[in-house]
Design a protein around this nucleic acid. Structure first.
Lengths: 326, 326
DNA sequence: AGGTTTTGTGTAACCGGTTACACATACTAT
DNA sequence: ATAGTATGTGTAACCGGTTACACAAAACCT
């Protein structure tokens, strides 16, 4: 392996000059620059990032902490993070936290020892005191940690209004809202949006808390549909819940979208595979990940960050679980 | 930050002794061990992995190279890899290759500089010459690189026989097989299995190549179903293709499973959300990832590896797209 | 001309570990 | 008693970079 000393010798300069040239720090004459460039070329020198890390106490590692990559929401996020990180020369470390603060803390501490450059943290938990102490650059998705940590999230409230109105405009007068867990910021924002839209329209409605899990959602939807056969619309706070509701409706023999219309939230790929295809309020997950990563890298590189709150617009996608509006 | 020198001073021994104790290498007396243990405790010393890496030229980083984490097959795999890696003290780096050999090569070379410990490589491409040169431990999923690289894969042929027989046993006499791309090992094994089972039964059949993509699969299935209304069974080489076929069938008004039965392959979570639920030959993706990681870590740690080929059994999951057998 | 500032470079310490080697002592075997 | 092995420890070089500091030459002042 060729080292910086080999390069220095070949170029007839000192290692300090080589290092300065390579880092663009300090003064280097044109002659020296040329000699170093040539030596690097000839020796096919490549800087050793570990040696560099050891004394700069920096690295190009980014930690991506998420509850579970298996959750259909996260792969696309991870993909975006990795794409952007790669394009800036960073490497992504995958951390499944299972929402367990202990696991999160372990990741943070063990990666800190590797001089990790920063973290992108996705969690459903509202608070996480152990992040507050961390001096490292962090960007959060969907949750506020403190004022100094930039947050990227979807325009959840607007999205819920969009979704609710889609049902109202298509004639729904008795809407079941499958809201997500109270502990989740986004779920609460969506709830606010739903209430606002439904309040304006003055339509009948019912709100039920429902985890973002398929089987459980199906069970809850079935119960609600049995209890109140008059329900003519379901707005679910996640596509997985919507899929459960759709399954329940089909099993109960409810005609979708003729008797019952359904709108989900998230826009995961599965939506189009269902029959009928799931209408949904789609988040631009890729964009969320990409922006979060760009913001993080700006922070890491001490470049100015314009804002500390980024709201990504959502988009209504209409498929077969809603009728066309007359 | 406390260093090994601080510990040495506090314990009244040399740094060499501390290092030997910490690594369990060389001789350390009981007295010295005790003193070092106490000093470590009191100073809350934690070893710096970067400094260690620099001169051992080793690390606890594992590279996970896969085509695209967004593909529903991979999140579970990634999860398994990360779980097992974590339990052995390793850290996982996520690499989306897009099946691009250039990207793969870049990942490998840039991670080599970080003294990465090994790679788990998942790819659909059959060959990858640049892996052959790498001296690093590698474990492959679903593809052979060379004799020295252990391979983990599903029992694809058996699975295809299982899936095909499930259709035959339920009365299918004219089966469409949506086979995957010729370039993929697993797809070819599944094809072999299908041909063997169908040959034994002597049933009518048709084989069509079909990418593992939803929209395309739907189109192909629709075309085939129109061409031959007598098709009473579809065996798809992936669940995504099966989902496309199901959609096509529903849109054409074919009754599933009464007129047409469908079996997929993979066992992704989406299968149960479809209506009717998708019968499928499920791979134990988590297990594949877990085994691959354990084998890799054994190789990294120079422990003996029993085999070089691990075949993970598949499991038939029957849901609504197949009838119950009389 | 002489003083300042800017430009340019090299030496050597340092980041925080590991380990080769030399040396010392204790235990065995003959 | 004596060589030979096992046990135990410390010194210092090394991994491959970065950077503080000292110093020299050139460029810019007034």
């Amino acid at each position: 392996m060729t080292t910086i000393r080999d390069v220095a010798k070949k170029a007839g300069v000192s290692v300090a000059t080589v290092s300065r040239f390579l880092n663009g720090s300090g003064y280097v004459s044109a002659d020296a620059a040329k000699a170093v460039t040539e030596a690097v070329e000839e020796l096919e020198y490549e800087l050793n990032p570990v040696a560099r890390s050891l004394n700069t106490k920096r690295s190009n590692l980014i930690g991506l902490i998420l509850p579970d990559i298996t959750n259909p929401f996260f792969p696309e996020l991870a993909r975006a993070v990795e794409d952007v990180a790669l394009s800036y020369g960073y490497t992504v470390i995958l951390c499944n936290s299972d929402e367990d603060p202990k696991k999160e803390k372990n990741y943070i501490e063990s990666l800190k020892k590797k001089y990790i450059a920063g973290f992108i943290v996705t969690s459903n938990q509202l608070d996480a005191p152990h992040y507050a102490n961390t001096k490292l650059p962090i960007v959060a998705l969907d949750r506020a940690i403190n004022e100094k940590v930039p947050v990227v999230s979807s325009n959840n409230k607007e999205g819920a209004i969009l979704g609710t109105n889609a049902l109202l405009e298509r004639g729904c007068r008795n809407i079941l809202f499958l809201r997500g867990p109270e502990a989740l910021n986004p779920a609460n924002d969506r709830h606010d949006g739903f209430m606002e839209a439904i309040g304006k329209a003055g339509a009948d409605h019912r709100v039920v808390t429902c985890p973002f899990q398929y089987a459980e959602s199906q069970k809850i939807a079935e119960r609600e549909l049995r209890n109140d056969p008059g329900i003519d619309g379901i707005f679910a706070s996640s596509d997985v819940s919507a899929a459960g509701a759709l399954k329940a409706a089909v099993l109960l023999g409810r005609k979708v979208p003729d008797d019952l219309q359904i709108v989900g939230f998230d826009g995961i790929a599965m939506g189009e595979m269902l029959s009928p295809g799931l209408s949904t309020v789609a988040q631009d997950v890729y964009k969320m990940g990409a922006i979060a990563t760009r913001v993080l890298i700006k922070r890491i590189e001490n470049k100015p960050v314009e804002e500390s709150f980024y709201e990504i617009p959502v988009k209504l996608i209409l498929r077969g679980t809603t009728r066309s509006v007359e």
